[in-house]
Design a protein around this nucleic acid. Structure first.
Lengths: 205, 205
DNA sequence: TTGCATACCATACAAATGTCTGGTAATCAA
DNA sequence: TTGATTACCAGACATTTGTATGGTATGCAA
């Protein structure tokens, strides 16, 4: 017999394993759970799973293979892959999205089927808005935005993050850093890439 | 025999069906495909699926049940569900993780199988570190941390985010805001919950 | 016509997988 | 002690499911 573990401990790990697999879209078989935990009997895995179902942590469709599911309550909103871009040159946005140099990151978008991309921020111009160099902003492509939105726009052929301000027929791009000057593009000469809907910072492991 | 459809037409529908099911995390069996398309033979479904694999539209793991996959799936790093906590009282961490009031968010962790949780930040004590009220920090549970790490610790029975500083046999929790005072817990009296590995800010739609 | 390809069908078999029955050992409380 | 509970094991069985073999009908092109 394998080592006996404290009550509930193994079961928590099993739940964890199930969540990972189910989120990844690859529901495991009972025997795959057995394998993962080195049980010598299928039944051991099955018992943990059935108990998790009783506890409401999982649901299942009896009789069907790979039939365990996450209950509605703990449903994680599905995340979509979003291309992570490094530097964006003018006009090269579409190509950059097609073949991102930073790979993809998972973003939970709010239902709509919009075009998203992610951008690594350089420079300190938005530091007072809590956006530091190295942060990743997630951007929804849209041709316009409201005053007060944080947006990504092409300035001098480079994508930059700024605060959008509109006052009577003037559009301005404000940095959130007193050391920088606002940018006032000529009327109608603003190429807005989209609006920032999320900011992420990855700290060292 | 069922009605004969133009070449490739049914197959396109099958691919669509597969995409839907696979994205939903519920890969179908060959017979479920048969059912969905009212084929009177399993083989009809199987032939469509195998051809889609040959065309590169799908991949599959031979021999395993529900073994068809989306080829792009390999590009997207898998994300794990992480419980999102609101307020954490002393000692109630484990229970809070078991039954999070904020649901779950998807996090791509760097391979290790660690315990993670997410915490909504209140207060402005870390504003100079780019962590604003309402931000979500993702925390890896660990009993110790290095000097300079941003950590979550229990202070006065509440979970708070602070900068950890160690100098000769003293451990201090520093806010990143000049309006707040550093916290110097009595030696050995620091209950460290974990280290912040990611910061997220969700901006309005 | 012939030959070939496509779409679909019928049936069988074997492997994968869910499920069941009964058992051992450890822990805890009465 | 006794009994109850938990964690795990062993082996079997039944269903689900992947796979194979061969067949029918339609359309198309040489």
């Amino acid at each position: 017999m394998a080592a006996r573990t404290p009550p509930g401990q193994t079961r928590r790990q099993v739940l964890r394993f199930m969540r990972e697999r189910l989120i990844a879209g690859r529901p495991p078989t009972v025997r795959e759970v057995q394998e993962a935990f080195k049980f010598r009997s299928v039944q051991s895995a099955r018992e943990h799973l059935e108990i998790l179902v009783e506890e409401g942590k999982l649901t299942k469709e009896p009789g069907v293979s790979r039939g365990y599911r996450l209950p509605e309550a703990s449903l994680v909103p599905p995340s979509v892959p979003v291309p992570l871009l490094g530097q964006v040159q003018a006009g090269a946005l579409t190509e950059a999205i097609e073949d991102p140099d930073g790979g993809y990151i998972g973003v939970q978008r709010g239902g709509s089927n919009d075009e998203l991309f992610a951008l690594k921020v350089t420079g300190e111009s938005m530091i007072d808005a809590g956006i530091l160099p190295g942060d990743v902003v997630i951007v929804r492509c849209q041709p316009t935005a409201d005053s007060g939105d944080i947006v990504v726009a092409l300035v001098d052929g480079e994508a930059t993050v700024k605060l959008l301000k509109k006052n009577r027929r003037r559009v301005e791009l404000h940095p959130a850093n007193p050391a920088f000057e606002p940018i006032v593009p000529a009327t109608g000469d603003l190429s807005l890439l989209g609006k920032v809907i999320e900011v992420r910072r990855y700290l060292g492991k």
